[in-house]
Amino acid sequence: MLQALADGILTGSIIALGAIGLTLTMGILRFANFAHAELITWGAYMALGALAITGTFAGPTPPFSFGLPLVFATLIAVVLTAALALLIDHLVFRPLRSHTSHMTVVFASFGVSLLVRMVILLIFGGSAAYYSNELQIAIRVMPGLRVMPDHVFTLGLTLAIVVALHLFLQKTRLGLSMRALAENPDLVRINGIDTRVVVRWTWVIGAALAAVSGVLYGLTVQLRPEIGFQLLLPLFAAAILGGVGNVFGAVIGGLIVGLAESLSVLFVPAGYKMAVPFFILLAVLYVRPNGIFGALRGGAK
């Protein structure tokens, strides 16, 4: 039970990071971006590609299975994932947002997700890959609970990112503009703020979090071109559970989904664990249609 809780929190924290980016873009741009999950895969593989260069300079830092090379590789992945998100917005979403309905943009995001996944498959192949071949010994924390040092790092980093993002949204002008944009884009413009700049930063932040989420998934599980496809529904469940546009809600939603998946195997066959979060999602939406923490309205062009 304890082990399932710990595993659930780990999975939940990775889902939460991805869901934060998704909820930000959904709240501000008002469309369900199915390509967001592929940014997670892209980020994970960009770090793998960068590691081929940075990994030659240093080895792992015990007790972790990775060292500074993966940190630098992640930074490169963040930049490359943000660049991809901006490119997709520039070439696909922005022209469609101006001239078509939201549904068209949603379907376009399906197409983009397939394209990104195929490009990854083409470059990196379909086999599973790992950032490190180092074996890690799980540390026994208490009877019935063992954790890997990498898992502790993942949880710590997620917590730090969530706190930093909260401070950013609450204390900075850009964060304030992003929150305002989710409510009323025209009024943001009237206030003298160029919403195109705010939208660009929303993509950059969402993509950066997706990249980190992908690296942490690759670090604690493995890299496969289907990472995004497998995380897609949990990400949406987390974002919707928490209330679209609500960063704190996405974190709680992610943890609920992760815990539900992990704890469900204690009661139902493992093959059904993917379905469990959706029963919870349906139950919550039945009581609170806007998610646990409500919803923001509005949207930007």
């Binding site: 304030l176 025209d186 009024l187 206030n191 003298g192």
Partner: peptide, 25 residues
């Protein structure tokens, strides 16, 4: 400066934040 008829303040933000946003330039 322009004050719209409806939705002319950000209801999800505090009064202070509304003013900070107005002064963002």
């Amino acid at each position: 400066a322009y004050v719209p008829q409806t939705a002319n303040v950000f209801t999800s933000l505090t009064i202070d934040e509304n003013l900070k946003l107005g002064a963002s330039t």
